[in-house]
């Protein structure tokens, strides 16, 4: 293709948008709405997942060591735990440490005057933080199989409910997003059909003069892609400003929630949301218009 033809085709794509400006606007508005909802869901999901990860990070598995385990054996077990792929961190908690932390809170600062012996003696343990909460059961089973471990404490319900919630949010969001994308494709389809009917005479002339299918169809496909791209800019800008303001508002108005609601920085959200939205916008624009021109724009009669 010649460069001049490329620019001509591109220009015709723009001209098409302006020629059917009301339909183009309707398509852009619909795509914008769909992508806005998509962006909103995406932002909620990534933040939810971030919060879950943060919450998961707080969940620990406690492995108690055999009472008669030697220091060397305890160290060895610690080393083995830390070498596991699913383990993020394993802190050794000695029986003295437990007593020193527990007693002042539950007995009083003068606990040493009352109790001369440590009731937690020989209750040494490892507090294990996980990289992925879904691997908890595997880790627990393995820990239980170690001869130097006497008992394992963990919260099964918290782990499964967090994992389950994560999956539900992901599936529901995916379903809604798919429906929205199909609606967008349908609308682009309509816009291009109208564009084709408006330009019917021009297409007939082109066909009679000897235009190729590619030459006739390209402006419509470009129109679709442009509508998709323009439709992406608006929701991205809206979500950007909305996100910054919501995060600020929650931070200022509900400081108590700051521990629970830990938002991702806006840059982290947009690192993937930006290319994803432009990609989906251009993609549905391309798909909607391409399918339409293939179906409705036959340059050659079948005879």
């Amino acid at each position: 293709m010649r460069i001049s033809t490329f620019f001509y085709t591109l220009r015709q794509g723009f001209v098409n948008i302006f020629r059917n400006k009301w339909f183009s606007l309707a398509s852009i508005a619909t795509i914008s709405s769909c992508l806005f909802l998509f962006g909103l869901f995406y932002t909620v999901i990534v933040n939810f997942q971030y919060m879950l990860r943060t919450a998961e990070g707080e969940i620990t598995v406690t492995a108690f060591l055999r009472e008669d385990a030697t220091d060397e054996e305890m160290e060895q077990v610690g080393e083995m735990i830390r070498n596991r792929a699913e383990v993020a961190r394993a802190d050794f908690i000695s029986d003295e440490q437990v007593w020193a932390e527990w007693a002042p809170e539950n007995i009083g600062e003068d606990y040493m005057d009352i109790y001369t012996e440590n009731p937690f003696e020989n209750m040494n343990s490892y507090e294990i933080y996980m990289k992925d909460i879904e691997q908890q059961q595997t880790l627990v089973d393995w820990l239980k199989s170690l001869p130097d471990i006497s008992e394992v404490h963990y919260s099964e319900i918290t782990a499964t409910s967090l994992t389950g919630m994560n999956a539900i949010v992901a599936y529901v969001s995916l379903g809604i997003i798919l429906i929205l994308l199909l609606v967008s494709i349908f609308l682009i389809n309509n816009t291009v059909i109208i564009g084709i009917s408006v330009r019917q005479q021009e297409i007939e002339i082109m066909s009679a003069i000897g235009a190729t299918n590619f030459f006739v169809r390209s402006p419509f496909v470009i129109e679709g892609i442009l509508i998709g791209l323009i439709g992406s800019v608006i929701p991205l800008a809206a979500i950007y400003f909305l996100y910054i303001n919501v995060v600020d508002y929650v931070g200022v108005q509900f400081p108590a929630l700051n521990v629970l609601l830990q938002f991702l920085p806006v840059k982290d959200v947009f690192d993937l949301l930006l290319p994803l939205t432009f990609g989906i916008g251009a993609g549905i624009g391309f798909l909607g218009s391409f399918v339409t021109v293939r179906k409705h724009l036959r340059v050659y009669a079948k005879g």
């Binding site: 005479q201 002339i205 003069i209 235009a211 340059v299």
Partner: peptide, 17 residues
């Protein structure tokens, strides 16, 4: 398309843009 470039066509209703 390439073949049709051999033929210039004029219509009754001009068909100008």
């Amino acid at each position: 398309p390439k073949f049709r470039r051999n033929i210039g066509i004029v219509f009754q209703d001009f068909r100008l843009l």
